[in-house]
Computed example of a mutant assay.
Amino acid sequence: MNTPIHLDSTLFSGQTFAWVKQNGVYEAVVDKNLVSFSEESFDSMLEKHAALRHYFDMGWEYGKAEAYLASLDVHLARAIKTCKGLHILNQDPWEVLMAFLLSQNNNIKRIRSMYERLSKELGSHVEGSWYAFPRPQELLGISERDLRSLGMGFRAPYLLDAIQNHEVLSGIPGLNDDEALRALQTIRGVGAKVASCVLAFAYHRQQAFPLDTWMLKVMKKHYPGRDASYFAPYAALAQQYLFHYERTQGGLP
């Protein structure tokens, strides 16, 4: 493979819950189309589909960003060396919002299961066993009771409010980062962490810096007294490298 992207680090680092990998084949529904490829076929697939080049963020300055971040400190340099080639995907804002509402007090395996259940029960069929994640227009008649019956639990009212107020997302590109964070948090259940995930993983806002339990531990141990500004102008990429490195390498006791 002649691309700088590392597929496993990119697709299984907690920024998306749509992908599966079986027998060396990566698969997910993207924009209501089943996308299926191996490492060997990845480059040729991108040549045929410009939209997927954008989705995988193939045109951004990763080499420059990684070199700058690695120069900041030894811990970040180690994370980048270990997980090099991690890209931040350009995902659909609606799917990111719903996925990270599901992520609250949850683990990745269960988030994937809930995401898949919503797709199969409420989304449109694509092919085989694959379904697209439902669009907000497909969910306008859904009730909190319906969502609870699908196992969404305490997240059901949050999902319902997102469905009813999804138009907030269309205004985000015209707002600065602080305004966008505030706008997203008008949706019930969206706090600073979920809002930052949406900004980073759907709008490529590089100063978004999601802080969950893992990242709070990382910051306390390795960056006491520092915040996202330390990693500027590549805070979102730094966060994703640190988060993935922590989860896969177990750097904390």
Rank of each mutant, 00 (worst) to 15 (best):
V35F: 05
D178C: 12
S229K: 07
L159I: 11
A208I: 11
A70H: 05
F100G: 00
Y234G: 10
A183P: 06
L169I: 01
A235Y: 05
Q206P: 02
R110L: 11
A162D: 09
L7Y: 05
A67H: 10
G225E: 11
N176R: 00
H54M: 14
L139Y: 05
G85P: 06
L237H: 03
R145V: 03
D227W: 04
F231Q: 07
E179M: 10
E246A: 11
A192C: 12
A70I: 12
Y245I: 12
R145G: 06
G171A: 14
W130N: 07
N107G: 04
V194R: 00
Y131H: 15
K221C: 03
E27C: 06
A208G: 06
G63P: 14
G153W: 02
Y68E: 10
R78Y: 03
D8E: 15
S113F: 07
N33G: 02
L72D: 13
S36F: 14
L89V: 01
L46N: 05
M114S: 14
D31A: 09
A183F: 01
W214C: 02
Q249D: 09
E116F: 06
Y241N: 10
N176K: 05
S13V: 03
A183I: 06
D43I: 11
E47W: 13
V168W: 03
H6V: 09
R112N: 09
K120R: 15
D161M: 08
L46V: 07
R155P: 03
A208Y: 05
L216N: 08
P224A: 03
I163E: 05
K193H: 13
H87L: 04
R188P: 09
R182M: 12
L147I: 02
P173S: 07
K21A: 10
T16K: 13
W130I: 14
T16W: 02
R53H: 08
G171E: 11
T248S: 13
V74N: 12
A132Q: 13
A77Y: 00
Y245N: 11
Q91W: 01
E40V: 02
Y55R: 04
L86A: 01
L86W: 00
N90M: 04
L52C: 10
P210S: 06
I172W: 01
E121N: 09
V74F: 13
E47V: 15
L76D: 08
M45H: 10
L89R: 01
P173H: 06
M1H: 08
N33S: 12
D43W: 04
R110A: 12
D146M: 15
A65I: 14
Q207K: 11
L102P: 08
S44L: 14
E179D: 14
D161N: 13
E66R: 14
T186G: 15
P233H: 15
F154K: 01
E144W: 14
R247D: 11
D8A: 02
F100T: 00
Q104N: 10
W214I: 04
K81E: 07
G151K: 09
L86F: 05
T10I: 02
R117N: 14
E167Y: 15
K220A: 15
Q207H: 15
L52V: 11
H244C: 08
R155M: 11
L252T: 02
Y234Q: 04
R247N: 13
S44D: 15
F17Q: 03
A51F: 14
Q239R: 07
M114K: 09
A156L: 01
